[in-house]
């Protein structure tokens, strides 16, 4: 129990020390800021996929809900950071509620396809309402708008700490859920939803809660991504942004707290490296997906937990 909490806190401490001791080069500092926000998105995804066992192929919808709600409110309505962040969280929570309510009418394979399709509606809508969203091109959030408590969020150092803060928040929420009775029920639903139902749990309601938590964390990550890196575009709503978190979670280990972070670091650098060599760098994603399904179903942390450290959350 205590070992577990120490492990996760020290992971956060390492991420903090890497920055404060100036170990990062400017390039890696920027990369890691991105990775941390994306890993927070992965944490959100993991709540639904890793813990509850529901495979969504449409999480880009929640990520872009946060991204666009906060981005558009700054761009068009001159909201400040607090207001836009709050709006981003509310909108993504609301959308998760609606999508969850509809998609949970299906199970299994249908659930996967339906989430994919909802996400596709969002993507096409962003393109269709191009006069507001700037479509494929997207828009830039000016540096002057990206100021929070008189801190300039475009400053690389502040940006890194902000990203770390957001990731830590999401990770600790995840850790807390994993250890709570609520989290146990989610795992029970993943393992055998019929049995969970026959123990008297309102399985649908738990699944709905799980989608709302997962979607809201994803939306929070999306909102922060736009604010910290100053760009909002339709590519974040495309199918590949639904596949990425799935891949991070699979590589790092589904149903593990640190899995999304490990998976995001791994894939980010792999893609970064591949894109220097070829335009068709997404082939890496394809190969990685096949590799994990064929040979490494538990992922990195999952394998460690299975073989050596049973106490890891």
């Amino acid at each position: 129990m205590r070992k577990d909490i120490i492990l996760h806190l020290s992971a956060l401490l390492i991420l903090f020390l890497l920055e404060i001791l100036g170990i990062f080069s400017e390039y890696h500092q920027g990369n890691f800021a991105r990775i941390l926000v994306l890993a927070a998105y992965g944490v959100g995804y993991n709540i639904l996929f890793g813990y509850t066992g529901l495979l969504s192929l449409g999480h880009a919808l929640f990520f872009s809900a946060g991204l666009y709600a906060s981005g558009l409110s700054i761009y068009h309505l001159d909201y400040n950071i607090e207001q836009s962040l709050f709006l981003g969280i509310c909108i993504s929570a609301l959308i998760s509620l609606i999508i969850g309510f509809l998609a949970l009418r299906t199970i299994g394979v249908s659930f996967m396809i339906v989430t994919l399709m909802f996400s596709q509606i969002a993507y096409l809508s962003i393109l269709y309402f191009g006069s507001i969203t700037r479509g494929d091109e997207g828009f830039v959030i000016q540096q002057s708008s990206r100021v929070f408590l008189s801190m300039d969020l475009s400053n690389p150092k502040i940006r890194y700490y902000s990203a770390l803060l957001i990731f830590s928040l999401c990770m600790l929420i995840n850790l807390w859920i994993a250890k709570s009775p609520f989290g146990r029920v989610l795992v029970a639903i993943r393992e055998n939803s019929d049995r969970a139902l026959m123990l008297g749990y309102n399985v649908k309601l738990y699944k709905l809660f799980s989608i709302i938590i997962s979607g809201t964390i994803s939306g929070l990550a999306g909102a922060c991504y736009g604010i910290l890196f100053g760009y909002v575009g339709a590519s974040f709503a495309a199918v590949s942004y639904s596949i990425f978190p799935l891949l991070w979670v699979l590589i790092g280990g589904a149903g593990t707290v640190l899995g999304p972070l490990i998976g995001a670091i791994f894939m980010f650098y792999l893609i970064d490296y591949a894109s220097d060599i070829t335009d068709a760098y997404m082939i890496i994603v394809g190969v990685a997906l096949l590799f994990v399904t064929l040979f490494a179903r538990r992922g990195i942390i999952g394998e460690l937990r299975f073989r050596y450290y049973k106490w890891i959350s």
Partner: peptide, 8 residues
Amino acid sequence: IATIGILY
């Protein structure tokens, strides 16, 4: 998941 891999 594997067919998504094949897709890419």
